[in-house]
Design a protein around this nucleic acid. Structure first.
Length: 176
DNA sequence: GCAATGATTTACT
DNA sequence: GTAAATCATTGCC
């Protein structure tokens, strides 16, 4: 949370501060890894520090960061970020938009703005075209708000877990 | 091999 | 507020 996510796609760098995330664990039904290891989610069973990119609903790419170690399929979904680098490029990729706050205020939109697609699946966040930096900005824990996750009502009780984290006062947080 | 469905977004009623 | 778009992965035949 609060760190900067960069991508370098087509020789164009875009980046932004992470302002909204959701945690996923193989232990709960919201995660793709819940049912066990499959071809799609095999990336999550790898060592942390790599990207897990998944195409959802045939249209939208979702960008996750694998966080745990081998055989422990935990990941963090990046739901929204605050555009910092390459905003013009993001607008170009997204086409006509009503306002800047909608550039990256959602997992599918964010991925499109950043140029993320399945080619990044399984890439290391340390030595590839996608990486995360810490700019040293202080982020008080008081500015982080936990709430229940979105879009996984099918997960039953697990959908109520307060595993969605947002930065208070950020304007780029998804609401729909 | 074929039918069902989803970590969503967008448009329309 | 509800429904459609759209395709990779999944599950069952």
């Amino acid at each position: 949370m609060g760190k900067i996510l960069y991508t370098n796609i087509d020789d164009i760098i875009t980046g932004g501060r992470i302002v909204e995330t959701e945690a996923y664990s193989w232990k709960e039904r919201g995660s793709h890894a819940y049912k066990g290891k499959t071809n799609r989610n095999a990336v999550m069973f790898n060592q942390g520090g790599i990207a897990y990119v998944y195409l959802c609903y045939g249209i939208h790419h979702l960008f996750n960061v694998v966080t745990n170690h081998m055989d422990v399929a935990d990941a963090v979904l990046i739901r929204a970020l605050e555009p910092i680098v390459g905003i013009e490029q993001m607008k170009k990729r997204r086409g006509k938009i009503t306002n800047e706050f909608q550039l990256t205020s959602g997992p599918g939109k964010l991925s499109k703005a950043m140029g993320i697609d399945r080619n990044l699946n399984g890439k290391s966040l340390l030595e590839s075209e996608v990486w995360i930096e810490d700019d040293g900005a202080s982020l008080s824990s008081k500015k982080i708000v936990a709430s229940k996750r979105i879009g996984i009502d099918y997960a039953g009780e697990d959908a109520l877990l307060p595993w969605r984290f947002t930065i208070k006062d950020s304007l780029w947080i998804s609401s729909t």
